[in-house]
């Protein structure tokens, strides 16, 4: 075991897989010589060569399209889209092609491409460096969508994603790259050193796609969340002194509904928290699915805490961000209902 931040854990996952499997190639803007703007691919081009770590033109649609072609020819490309906010030029290739090759060809062609992309706010990135587009991809049949909340899961899930025979959208909450974030930007940043999930095996291991994890056990209320908000929710529950069970969804598609509903049946109360805008967001799917399975166990309506339905504003980042105060308010509301 070693202490790793999320960047190091992701780098270690890529390194591990490139060493194990010569068909794994990396591509993306600035990923080669420079090692990526967030340093996730640092050192890998030197180690594995220019044919396996390709600097790409600034053309996300071209990056994904060529990754598809490579995957069809037996490679396992891991494409980096520098920010999730830049992924939209590739949307047609992802939605109409990558997600559907297997289906439309009756299972004859498929493209095991992993698309890594940093998402989420809290880094003063303004409206073009802060988005959380998971719902946009969750709605597309044929894509797996994951979002880890810590270094251990990040490495294990990325290895699983690369080995997966289906395409995976791998969303990396960039606010968590260097340490867990508990929702208060005034407090000094904390490293992963003191967090149990900062301990990461150096070699190969996997975390399955399709399994949620109970990040904190509790009996009074269930908080269903993922990404950065896992840590913010923990801080909120702690501050409010509420015995909340926190579930880290981890895998948005496929969704581990059983873990979610088992918890909500136990607690009888639930809030859903995500950073992305609320309207049409993935929270709506979570609420609907949980409600369908748990209606007769519920003591209160399920509430959502999400980003406001606006673009992510630069100057009002912390008014936008669904921080501990909003989570505590929602927790109190569902706890008081009877």
């Amino acid at each position: 075991m070693a202490i790793m931040n999320m960047l190091q854990a992701l780098n270690s996952a890529l390194d591990t897989m490139m060493a194990r499997d010569s068909s794994v190639v990396l591509m993306g803007e600035d990923v080669g010589y420079f090692g990526g703007v967030f340093r996730v691919t640092e050192g890998l081009q030197r180690k594995y060569g220019e044919h396996r770590v390709l600097d790409s033109p600034i053309a996300e649609g071209g990056i994904v399209a060529t990754a598809i072609g490579m995957a069809v020819h037996g490679l396992r490309p891991v494409a980096e889209i520098q920010f999730a906010d830049y992924i939209y030029p590739a949307y047609d290739q992802i939605v109409s092609e990558l997600a559907r090759l297997r289906y439309r060809s009756g299972g004859d062609f498929f493209a095991p491409v992993t698309i890594r992309t940093p998402c989420g706010g809290g880094i003063r990135g303004g409206q073009t460096h802060s988005q959380s587009p998971e719902a946009v991809f969750a709605h597309v049949c044929g894509l797996k969508v994951v979002m880890p909340s810590n270094p251990y899961d990040a490495k294990g899930l990325l290895i699983t994603a690369i080995e997966d025979e289906d395409p995976v959208i791998f969303l990396e909450p960039k606010r968590l790259y260097n340490g867990p974030f508990y929702g208060d930007p005034e407090k000094p940043a904390q490293p992963w050193n003191d967090h149990p999930k900062g301990e990461v095996p150096e070699g190969y291991y996997t975390v399955p796609i399709g399994q949620a994890e109970i990040a904190r056990e509790g009996r009074a209320v269930t908080i269903v969340t993922y990404g950065t908000m896992v840590h913010v929710a923990q801080a909120a529950a702690h501050t409010a002194g509420i015995d909340a069970e926190i579930i880290d969804v981890r895998s948005i598609v496929p969704l581990d509904l059983a873990t979610l509903t088992e918890s909500v049946k136990k607690t009888g109360r639930c809030i859903v928290v995500h950073e992305a805008t609320g309207f049409g967001g993935f929270g709506g799917e979570l609420v609907a699915s949980i409600q369908e399975a748990c209606f007769w166990h519920l003591e209160a309506p399920i509430l959502r805490v999400a980003g406001w339905d606006t673009p992510y504003p630069h100057a009002f980042e912390w008014e936008y961000f669904p921080g501990p105060a909003r989570i505590i308010a929602a927790l109190k509301s569902v706890m008081e209902a009877s």
């Binding site: 649609g61 071209g62 399209a65 060529t66 990754a67 598809i68 072609g69 490579m70 995957a71 069809v72 020819h73 037996g74 490679l75 290739q93 092609e97």
Partner: peptide, 11 residues
């Protein structure tokens, strides 16, 4: 069109 280019790059 760009998928073919990716296939050729892999070749």
């Amino acid at each position: 069109f760009p998928q073919a280019v990716g296939w050729a790059m892999a070749a």
